[in-house]
Design a protein around this nucleic acid. Structure first.
Length: 457
RNA sequence: GGCGCGGUAGCCAAGUGGUAAGGCCGAGCUCUGCAAAAGCUCUAUCGGCGGUUCGAUUCCGCCCCGCGCCUCCA
């Protein structure tokens, strides 16, 4: 199987393969800014990237993939959060890093091999900026900040086709750039930001004075350090395509004089009520909120994968209900497999891998999966099915949420109903069941007892 | 204004130049006092109008509608 994936730069499908002779596939995925809980739109990207990681491992071998995902732990948002809460920056970023890790774990995302932080790579960033200054690609402005001179890089705009757009009067860029007055050109972007009072203690020394790195340079520096000058695949959400990734290319290629990434991939946004999630629209969900509503993280993982990654995906609580049901079907199916090895039957799941390797057609893979499931478990090799589950990252035993303790009133109602049923008072039992349903609980009868479970919202 | 993406059953969502996967919901059925669980069955002609073609949902043109990026947003 060879993995073909859309490349944002050439706008075509290209095969993924390691370029270096060591055969190691170098994979860099832009990570989160750790100042708040990531929302599920963020997690769509990370879950999709987790599928990429898993496919790469299946294709090249687990020890032939190096996956790096950064943590942005110094920027306007993290600093503001620390200032608002009157806490040290590191305190805040460590808190939200831990939360991010916990969420990723419950979504069953494989941890990256290296997870570098911006604050942990200040010298590397300074070094790159120094080279850019020396080569004439950057300049120090009157405010003490260092900017990248966009028009010094011929190829600028290749990724986003920025040269095809007119930066006309009144464009958002011109109107709102806070540092517009300092820069030689509105398109220039900060490599090093001179210290401002509101930055507080969050400043580092540099040849250009105290300050902090700009956003884009961290990825250039960290990917270079951990993966080398040229990487095989660089990914992120579509909103990073411009300017973030465009700027990364400019910095890295001007500094190193070598190609930055062979392949670029961007996943599309998760939509709620037809719109991208945002705080201002109030349509933002976090994993914790969904778990509080009774949904399992695995259901969210499933729901986030129901659309093609390069297409916007509509999310709703209904999609979580659908996901729970679909996953239960898979769990039931797996439980029905007898575990007997059937080497001759391991290829029945091939259509699933074919779909995945064909530009990450995950919905297509789901379709193939359920088509196979409906043929029944007879003669199916358990290990082969588990490889499918690995590729998709589904942990079916994680589906069951810890049992919820019912309130005493509910317990009493249930006991009463059970007694009525034992006495063959079915009318009374039914009435009590209705009371329980109205109270938000379902009573599951068994031969010799019963259990209670809360109805989902 | 520039760049890009999309409009497929009640909802979500694949896909192909030759009469449209899959999931959910709903309905019916099997099982079961009821409910649940499990299983089976059923439900679309693909935004609109033209064009190319033996034939288009799939290619081309126009139109309508929606979304994203152009602001340190995944």
């Amino acid at each position: 199987m060879s993995i073909r994936l859309y490349d944002s730069l050439t706008r075509s499908l290209c095969e993924l393969r390691p370029a270096q002779p060591d055969g190691i596939f170098r994979f860099y995925n832009c990570g989160p800014t750790v100042y708040a809980p990531a929302h599920i739109g963020n997690f769509r990207t990370f879950v999709v990237n987790d599928i990429i990681r898993r496919l790469l491992e299946l294709e090249f071998g687990a020890n032939k993939v190096k996956h790096v995902r950064n943590l942005t732990d110094v920027d306007d948002k993290t600093i503001k959060r620390a200032r608002d809460e009157q806490r040290p920056l590191a305190d805040v970023t460590q808190q939200w890093t831990a939360k991010f890790h916990a969420d990723c774990a419950s979504l069953n995302c494989l941890p990256p091999h290296v997870e570098p932080t911006a604050t942990g790579h200040i010298p590397e960033q300074v070094d790159m900026i120094a080279v850019l200054m020396k080569k004439g690609y950057a300049y120090r402005a009157a405010d003490g900040s260092v900017y990248f001179k966009v028009n010094s890089f011929e190829a600028y705009g290749a990724l986003s086709r920025v040269k095809e757009r007119e930066l006309q009067t009144g464009s958002a860029l011109k109107a709102t750039a806070a540092d517009a007055d300092e820069k030689e050109d509105v398109s220039d972007f900060a490599l090093w930001k001179a210290h401002k009072p509101e930055d507080g203690a969050n400043a580092w020394d540099s040849p250009w004075g105290r300050g902090r790195p700009g956003w884009h340079i961290e990825c250039s520096a960290m990917s270079k350090k951990h993966l080398g000058e040229t990487i095989d695949l660089h990914t992120g959400g579509v909103d990073l395509l411009f300017p973030h990734h465009e700027n990364e290319i400019a910095q890295s290629q001007c500094c190193n004089g070598t190609p930055f990434a062979h392949h670029w991939y961007h996943s599309e946004h998760l939509l709620v009520d037809g719109k991208k999630m945002s705080k201002s629209l109030g349509n933002l969900y976090t994993l914790d909120e969904l778990v509080a509503k009774g949904f399992s993280p695995m259901a969210l993982r499933y729901a986030l994968l129901t659309g093609h990654p390069r297409k916007q995906l509509s999310f709703s609580l209904d999609s979580l209900h659908a996901a729970e049901s679909a996953l239960k079907t898979l769990r039931t199916y797996r439980a029905a497999l007898d575990g007997r090895s059937r080497a001759e039957a391991t290829t029945i799941f091939a259509p699933i891998f074919t779909a995945l390797a064909d530009d990450l057609n995950i919905p297509g893979a789901f379709g193939a999966l359920f088509t196979i499931v409906h043929r029944g478990p007879a003669g199916v090799d358990l290990a082969a099915f588990d490889r499918v589950l690995f590729a998709l990252g589904f942990q079916l035993d994680a589906l069951d949420l810890p049992p919820v303790e019912a309130p005493t009133a509910i317990v009493a109602l249930a006991a009463k109903r059970w007694a009525a049923k034992q006495a063959k008072d079915f009318a009374g039992a039914d009435a009590l069941r209705q009371e329980l349903t109205a109270a938000g609980w379902n009573m599951k009868d068994a031969k010799d007892g019963y259990s209670l479970e809360p109805l989902k919202q």
